[in-house]
Write a protein that binds this DNA or RNA. Structure first.
Lengths: 233, 233
DNA sequence: TGTGACTCAAACGTCATACTTAATTTGCCG
DNA sequence: CGGCAAATTAAGTATGACGTTTGAGTCACA
C-alpha cells in the first residue's frame, strides 16, 4: 500500500496521475514539459521521469514537436495498481468500484475452486481462522477489526489458488473492501448471511470440495454486487 | 501490439525487461546505473528513465547507496501488457500461458454472460460474422485466417461486456491465442467442437440468453485449458 | 571483548545547460 | 493552387556538478 512517493518525480506523479485519471486533462490534452517544470518548480529530469512512468501506464503519449498528450481512457493500463488507486481516490470512483466488483465476481469463485484443490494445510487453517474472526467481530461496531479478517480471508483465497494473476488481485480486493467499509455507514454491522458464507467457504476448501467452494464464493460476490447496486448512484 | 521502442530508453527497456522477467537477474540482484550506462553506451538520463519504468512495473526497486535491486516475482505487475509480452517471449512462457488461460477461464464466461445482456445489435452482428468466419476457415490449413476471426470474436465478447477491466484483456487473449497458433503444429485444423461452441455463443448472445452464453463460453475456456494440458510440459 | 557513536564513501537523486532529432508549420517558388 | 524546402518548436540525449541518503567500517570507551 506504500506509495512510491519517494523523490521529487514521485511527488509529480502523485499530482499528475490523479489529475489525469480524474479527467482534469481530457484525452487529447497536451502537457508541455517546460510548463510542468515551472508549475512544479523542479528540473526537467524530474518531469521527464514522471512522464516516462505515465507513458508506461499508457495514460499519456509523448511525441516530438507536439508535447505529451493524454490518451483516451480505453487505452489506460487499468490493471496498474497505481492507476486503480488514483481512480478509486478520484471522481471515477463509482465506476471503478463497479468494474472491480464485476472482476471480483468473475475471478474469486474460480480462485476459490482452485484453492479447494491446492490450498496447503496451513492456508486452510488461516482461512478458517479468518472466517471465525469475521464471525467474532461481526456484531457491535467492530467494523475495522472485521475488515482485517475479511481482507485477509480473500487474500488467502486468491493466493492459495496457485495462480499468480489471481494472487496479484489481492491488493485490489483489499482496496475495494476497505473502500466499501470506509464509505458505508459505519454503524451497520456486516450482513450475517455474508459472514456465514465465508465460514462455509472455509469449510468447503478444507474438505476439498471445489464445486461447493466456487458456488459459495459466487454467492459472496453476488452479494457484493447487489450491495453496490443499493449504495451506488 | 506496437512496442514503445521509440528512443534509446525504449531500447534499454526492451533489453532489460525481458532479461529480468526471464530470470537472468535473480531477485535481489543489483544493477548499478553507471554499469548499465557503459554496457548500453548511453547516458545516465536514458538509463534512469528506463529504470523508472521498470520501477513502476515493480520489477525493480531503486535505493540510494545500494543500487537498483530486482524485486521478487510475487511483486511484479503481472498485468502490465509489456510484462506479459516479455514473459510470453521468454523462458517463463509455459507458466505465463497457464496463468493467462486460467484467468481467461474465469473472466470470459462472465464477460459472455454480460454481453448477452448488454451487446448492441452491431456487436451481435460482429459476433455472428466472426463465428461464421471461424467455421469457414476451420478446414484446410487456413489457420492464420481462422486466428483472425477467433481473436476478433473474443475481443468483441470482452468489449461488449461493458466492463473496462474485461475489455482491456482483449490484447492478452489475443496474445494467448496467437501464441497458441504459432506454437501449435501448423497443420492440425482447429477442433470442430470448439468452432461449433463459438457459433452457439454468438447465438446465445443474440438471443439474450446470458446463462447459456456463460455456460457455453465456460466450455470453450475449459477446452483451452485441456488443450494446454496436452501440449505443455 | 563488545557495544556504541562517529566518520566516510558509494550510489542514487537533482539540477543546469548545451546539443540533437524529428515533426509541424510556414512560406517560397514553380 | 500545389508541392517542396526551410524555419521553428518541443521532446530526446549527453554531460558535468552537486546534494542526499545510507550502509559499512572505524575508533573510542566501558
Amino acid at each position: 500500500m506504500e506509495n512510491q512517493g519517494q523523490g521529487l518525480h514521485g511527488r509529480v506523479l502523485e499530482s499528475l496521475g490523479p489529475a489525469i485519471t480524474a479527467g482534469a486533462y481530457p484525452p487529447g490534452s497536451v502537457l508541455r514539459t517546460d510548463e510542468l517544470e515551472q508549475r512544479f518548480e523542479v528540473s526537467r529530469t524530474v518531469i521527464r521521469e514522471a512522464i516516462r512512468v505515465l507513458e508506461s501506464m499508457h495514460l499519456v503519449a509523448s511525441r516530438r514537436r507536439v508535447g505529451v498528450t493524454v490518451r483516451p481512457t480505453e487505452e489506460w493500463n487499468v490493471y496498474d495498481p497505481q492507476v486503480i488507486r488514483w481512480r478509486l481516490a478520484g471522481a471515477d470512483r463509482p465506476r471503478q468500484l463497479r468494474s472491480l466488483t464485476v472482476l471480483r465476481s468473475a475471478v474469486e469463485p474460480v480462485a476459490a475452486g482452485l484453492s479447494a484443490r491446492l490450498a496447503t494445510a496451513e492456508q486452510c487453517e488461516e482461512l478458517t481462522r479468518h472466517a471465525l474472526g469475521m464471525v467474532a467481530t461481526s456484531r457491535g461496531q467492530q467494523l475495522s477489526a472485521y475488515l482485517v479478517h475479511d481482507v485477509a480471508f480473500h487474500r488467502v483465497i486468491l493466493r492459495a489458488s496457485g495462480n499468480e494473476m489471481f494472487a496479484r488481485l489481492g491488493d485490489v480486493v483489499a482496496e475495494v473492501l476497505t473502500g466499501r467499509t470506509e464509505h458505508q455507514v459505519m454503524f451497520t454491522d456486516p450482513d450475517p448471511a455474508a459472514v456465514t458464507l465465508h465460514v462455509r467457504v472455509a469449510e468447503a476448501v478444507r474438505e476439498r470440495d471445489a464445486a461447493r467452494a466456487e458456488a459459495l464464493t459466487r454467492e459472496i460476490t453476488a452479494g457484493a454486487m447487489a450491495e453496490l447496486d443499493v449504495l451506488a448512484p
